[in-house]
Design a binder for these strands. Structure first.
Lengths: 285, 285
DNA sequence: ATTCTGCTGGAATATTTATTCTATCCCCTG
DNA sequence: CAGGGGATAGAATAAATATTCCAGCAGAAT
């Protein structure tokens, strides 16, 4: 069987692209899609172009060559590999990107702020705005002493147990993954097989418990926190309101109000706090 | 930084400028302040430069001359009138402006990553800052059409299957919880009991798949996306780099770079995008 | 091993782009 | 309204930047 591997004569582009990319987005797509087909040096350039689109847009061919550690001629081969006449044509797309983003940002924000729209883009804009506000609020209102205390308690623990369900469960999953990755002992109380009570009994006197629960406060989680605290074991909690049952059933309790759109609350802000606890735990060790 | 030397020392700049502008802001100020002193043609250029900073940054001297209706040599006189050696030096400031605005995100993230105090409160501050930058970046760079397409594909699906592991798993957990809560059919491919292959077979021809994977790209997830896409079933993906294997093995692929401190990457930004997809899915129904 | 094919580096060349130079123009002043 | 001084246009030139070309190389196929 004759392979259609026959690359056409020199003048034609190696890729059979019918019409060549006309925007930055398109060329990024084209580069990603054909990356595997590229030769070693061309891969190198592709990676550089995707990672440094700004520099790529304004540097001269010589400077780009230096920064990407290739020969100038390789950049031209790169351009031709995607059907262009030369490097400048490719660079133009990257320049266009700078202009586009720069001029369209304001108008995009406008369309996003415009209240009632429910297009996905408008929703994203509102979530971003909401999450930013929530994050700023978080950093302004969290008491440093609480953070210190939480890190101290978790740092001293033999095994860190972690429990959260429903909407808060992803926090537990992330916490577990991160703690385990850094080589510490951690146990996830996930109530698998209805074995929650048994898992709870695994919490030792020198351990610690991290719990998170929101809104209608999962009874199992609250109960575990309560029991564990009663046994004199440190409990670090993350919840959403001062009147949450976790406030009283924990050694240290953080209150985070995540952003909501259409009554749907996210997790970005809580994630940020969890991330902070984890890294603080990591650097102190 | 090795600059092609400027050979001729010009005696003295026409304006008494002691030290010449080094940023776009500064040169704009300088131009405004001295506008009245300028000659007719130089005024014309000043006006053009202030009104079209984008074009001014990327056009060649000849094109700028044409657009501003002046001679190329006038542009050089303009540059020298403010104490520069030549046009290129002025243009560089305008280019820098494009980069500044555009790369503020990366550099902000960079500045957040390593250095600084390691008290928990300081870490929180850095995470908050990093996540805010990442969120802003997200809302600027996401293509609305991609969002629309993703929502459309997921909206049409009979059952939505969702798969993510390791660091990305919390995204799948949150996605599952939220979709199930709003009363839609959803399946979590969690590979429990090593039954991943069988779970994958549950994906029907009218369904859709949502996957997320980062950094060292879980092979199982990539494989499932590939197989599913090959069967003609829509795959919506969330990953962290254009060269991720998910880019090519999906119908729609989002790229999100979460903020990192001490090499530990969070999930806040990805969470925000997932949250957006979910609510968009909810309101369209 | 041996040939072949396509990739690569780097010098040579072509092209584009920036800058200089000067005759001419304009406009101000006396 | 004549003369002078700065500004201007446009051609001429210099510099830079992009592109071509080819010899040598490396990896695949034989």
């Amino acid at each position: 069987m004759t392979k259609p591997h026959t690359r056409i004569e020199k003048p034609s582009p190696p890729t059979r692209a019918a019409l060549l990319p006309a925007t930055h987005q398109e060329i990024v797509h084209e580069i990603s899609a054909n990356y595997e087909r590229l030769s070693k040096r061309l891969k190198q350039i592709a990676g550089y172009a995707l990672d440094n689109p700004n520099d790529f847009a304004i540097d001269t061919i010589a400077e780009t060559a230096r920064k990407a550690q290739v020969q100038p001629s390789a950049l031209i081969r790169f351009a031709k590999a995607f059907g262009f006449d030369g490097f400048s044509d490719v660079q133009r797309l990257f320049q266009q990107r700078l202009l586009d983003v720069h001029s369209s940002y304001e108008s995009r924000l406008e369309s996003v702020r415009g209240s009632g729209e429910n297009t996905p883009a408008a929703l994203l804009g509102r979530f971003v705005e909401g999450n930013i506000a929530a994050l700023e609020h978080l950093s302004r209102t969290i008491a440093p002493e609480k953070l210190n205390e939480a890190v101290r308690l978790l740092g001293q623990a033999g095994v860190i147990h972690v429990m959260a369900m429903h909407r808060a469960f992803p926090l537990a999953a992330f916490f577990y993954y991160a703690i385990a990755t850094m080589g510490r002992r951690v146990q996830l109380i996930d109530n698998v097989g209805g074995l929650g009570r048994e898992q709870q009994k695994q919490i030792g006197i020198n351990d610690a418990l991290f719990v998170a629960s929101f809104s209608s406060y999962t009874p199992e989680v609250v109960h575990t926190a309560e029991q564990t605290l009663r046994r004199g074991i440190p409990v670090v909690a993350l919840t959403d309101h001062p009147l949450s049952p976790l406030t009283t059933n924990s050694s240290v309790c953080f209150h985070v109000k995540d952003a909501a759109v259409h009554d749907f609350r996210g997790l970005s802000t809580s994630m940020c706090l969890v991330q902070t606890l984890i890294v603080a735990l990591g650097v102190e060790a």
